[in-house]
């Protein structure tokens, strides 16, 4: 079981409130999206969840354990892949294990079986700059997975990719989530992406950012290939645009 609960979190910087009274729940195997405009406090919330920022109020729980302000429990992945250019892919994805105190050799061994699952076979000995943007994001996700098996925080992970790569990454991501039983909390400002991927969407709006709406996408997974062309999809989009605007 893995469940992430964010409870009544508020945070100010320099006397300005960024997020206020935010409540988020992520159940096992779910993909939940935080949708909001840029600069709306999404990243602040992520830093609170990953333990890098201590909130003024509120708590974060992972599987019932309080992890507020404790880094080292949940890792995240950003738009930038942040792979270390001087480490091979193998050593990049194994890095979280090395940080936890495992030997380099042991960490490599632990990571090895997952390369196939993440579609990264044959890249073990390559350096990040030898891979395409999409492949690098896969490696970044694999590193996140090596760190925390159950929950992944993704901050606009695909927004730097071109449309075609992005679309294939979406399909790939939904697949791999299924395979490795991952729960995902996903930040985006892309409404289409949110509807396409999510089980539930939280709308984070206003200043300070508050969660004003929770929308459940009732479309079975795996989603149809043309889901984004259906009437239901457009209805969701209309609803979100109304609430956000």
């Amino acid at each position: 079981m893995s469940e992430l609960i964010v409870k009544n979190v508020s945070k100010s910087f320099d006397g300005r409130k960024i997020i206020q009274n935010v409540n988020v729940t992520l159940h096992e195997g779910e993909l939940v999206c935080l949708l909001g405009v840029s600069g709306g406090g999404k990243t602040t919330l992520f830093n609170v969840i990953s333990g890098l920022t201590i909130p003024d109020e509120g708590q974060v729980f992972l599987d019932g354990e309080e992890i507020t302000g404790k880094p080292g429990k949940i890792s995240y992945m950003l738009q930038k892949d942040l792979l270390l250019p001087y480490r091979t892919i193998e050593d990049n994805v194994a890095l979280p294990l090395v940080i936890k105190g495992m030997s380099k050799k042991e960490a490599r061994k632990q990571a090895a079986p997952y390369f196939a699952e993440f579609g990264l076979e044959g890249t073990e000995k390559k350096y990040p700059r030898q891979l395409s943007g999409g492949m690098r994001q896969r490696a970044a996700l694999m590193r996140t997975y090596m760190f925390s098996r159950n929950v992944a925080l993704l901050d606009e992970p695909f927004s730097a990719l071109d449309t075609i790569t992005k679309s294939s990454m979406h399909t790939w991501y939904l697949n791999i989530m299924e395979q490795i039983h991952l729960s995902t909390l996903f930040i985006t400002h892309d409404i289409d992406e949110a509807i396409l991927l999510s089980d539930r969407i939280y709308l984070l709006t206003g200043k300070p950012g508050e969660i004003t709406q929770e929308i459940v996408i009732r479309e079975p997974k795996p989603r149809r290939a043309d889901f984004n062309l259906t009437e239901e999809f457009l209805q969701y989009k209309r609803l979100i645009l109304e609430k956000i605007g």
Partner: peptide, 10 residues
């Protein structure tokens, strides 16, 4: 960002 990422990994 890279340093923060590593920090988040403890």
């Amino acid at each position: 960002d890279t340093m923060n990422l590593l920090r988040s990994m403890g």
